[in-house]
Nucleic acid binder design. Structure first.
Length: 434
DNA sequence: TTTTGAGTTGTTCGA
DNA sequence: GTCGAACAACTCAAA
């Protein structure tokens, strides 16, 4: 029996411009595409997690696309480390191809997969697909990774050549897919242990030229649809980062910079995996957080008495999304007004955000709390009232999410701005100098 | 090795 | 109202 090749989809739920899939199809071998619902991840999620519904929908679409090409996407449920060797036996696989993942847990998983497959004499091949530049492609002149964004972005741009955004035409090579006419049914959300009720709208899979071109002027105003909301599609690979970068680079430098930030944080978590759980700068883990449970709950529920903060949290709770400017404001408020550990906030975001991406999330939270690489200085504390005046002056955003604002039903501020910010600066100062 | 300039997104105060 | 400086030093990156 002829040997086959397995292509393992993870956070790359598309056929077109998929580097790993292109690589697999280019070998000329018969390629079997597979996706595994990883129960070690799913078991930690709540039954109504909207991201599982999103993935399930996209898997369903991807499966039909493979079926149109005369093949099928095989679906498994379980622990990939245990399943992959079995799948390889079942289909006489000689090589497994996948796109690389840079999160510490994923790297550990892939290392184990590599060992298990190696023991069976099966190759395990990775491809770069999730970012423009990965690992050691953008380093300082001394060969070490950057920890400051601006010089990183300069080197990133200097290193860029005309073909770095080029698509990998995986979709034009589908005749090498393993052919089948017996379609395996897709496991249902209920079978996976999820309730399957979609409560939020999923963002569309594209961004208009006009949004990108106006991005730098409009992105800071939460009442304006000035951001692309493509985070979830980048997270699960339902769009190609190369296609997006191509569009951005020709239209808006600020937008391109945001994509470079994404590469930057992916690179940081790859080189400094401790920063997934601990502060990048360890001395910030000595800060004596207040961690007041009642304050935290008020923050989660959007009833701090600071309208911009509350609007943001309520937008998050209802839609699974929060405008980026407001993310900074609520993160600054939690860490620097309430003096609550950035991990509490990061964990809450991880649970709620449809577009949650570990590297960007811990990067952002550590930036706001001052504990990250290239973070805001500790004395830089957003004033929620001033931010409201600057970015939602007409209170369109606030009134949308906090309709009772201005009535007696709206809570009074749970803490005083001047008092708490002075306290935080004093505590940070003392901790960092001791 | 030493030196120099710079560092996502702010706020407050006083002239 | 506008503007510059202070906030607090420190570390990083590159020459």
């Amino acid at each position: 029996m002829e040997n086959n090749l397995l292509f393992w989809h993870r956070r790359d739920l598309r056929i077109e411009d998929n580097h790993g899939l292109f690589k697999a199809l280019s070998t000329g071998k018969s390629v079997i595409p597979v996706f595994i619902f990883d129960t070690t991840i799913l078991s930690k999620l709540k039954a109504n997690d909207q991201r599982v519904i999103f993935i399930h929908q996209e898997i369903s679409r991807l499966k039909s696309e493979y079926q149109l090409a005369g093949s099928d996407l095989l679906i498994y449920v379980g622990n990939p480390i245990e399943l992959l060797p079995k799948i390889c036996d079942e289909f006489t696989i000689e090589k497994v191809v996948t796109n690389r993942d840079y999160e510490p847990n994923a790297i550990q998983r892939d290392l184990l997969v590599y060992e298990f497959l190696k023991a069976k004499n099966i190759e395990f091949i990775g491809a770069k697909d999730h970012v423009i530049f990965e690992k050691k492609e953008v380093l300082k002149d001394d060969g070490k990774p950057y920890t400051i964004f601006t010089p990183y972005s300069k080197k990133w741009k200097a290193r860029l050549t005309s073909d770095d955004f080029d698509a990998f035409p995986s979709e034009s090579n589908l005749n090498n897919l393993c052919k089948t006419d017996t379609y395996q049914p897709l496991v249902t959300l209920e079978e996976l242990g999820f309730d399957g009720v979609q409560t939020i709208d999923f963002p569309i899979k594209s961004v208009s030229e006009s949004l990108v071109s106006k991005y730098s002027e409009q992105r800071d105003f939460p009442s304006v649809n000035g951001t692309s909301r493509l985070g979830v599609h980048l997270r699960f690979g339902t769009i190609s980062i190369r296609a997006l970068a191509r569009q951005a680079s020709s239209q808006n430098e600020t937008y391109l910079n945001e994509l470079i930030w994404r590469d930057f944080y992916q690179m940081i978590i790859y080189h400094f995996p401790h920063s997934a759980k601990d502060s990048f700068k360890s001395q910030y883990d000595r800060i004596p957080w207040d961690n007041n449970e009642a304050h935290f709950q008020a923050w989660c529920d959007g009833r701090t008495g600071y309208p911009l903060v509350d609007a943001g949290m309520r937008e998050l709770n209802v839609t699974g999304h929060m405008h980026n400017r407001v993310r900074m404001v609520v993160a600054s408020f939690l860490t620097k007004h309430l003096l609550i550990d950035w991990r509490w906030g990061a964990t809450y975001f991880a649970e709620k955000l449809l577009d949650f991406e570990l590297a960007s999330n811990v990067g952002g939270w550590q930036w706001a709390s001052g504990s990250g690489c290239d973070a805001a200085p500790y004395f830089r504390i957003f004033n929620p009232a001033l931010q409201l005046d600057k970015f939602d002056k007409q209170m369109v955003y606030v009134k949308k999410w906090v309709p009772e604002f201005g009535t007696p039903a709206y809570p009074t501020p749970i803490v005083d701005h001047a008092t708490t910010t002075k306290r935080t600066i004093a505590i940070y100062k003392e901790t960092l100098n001791s």
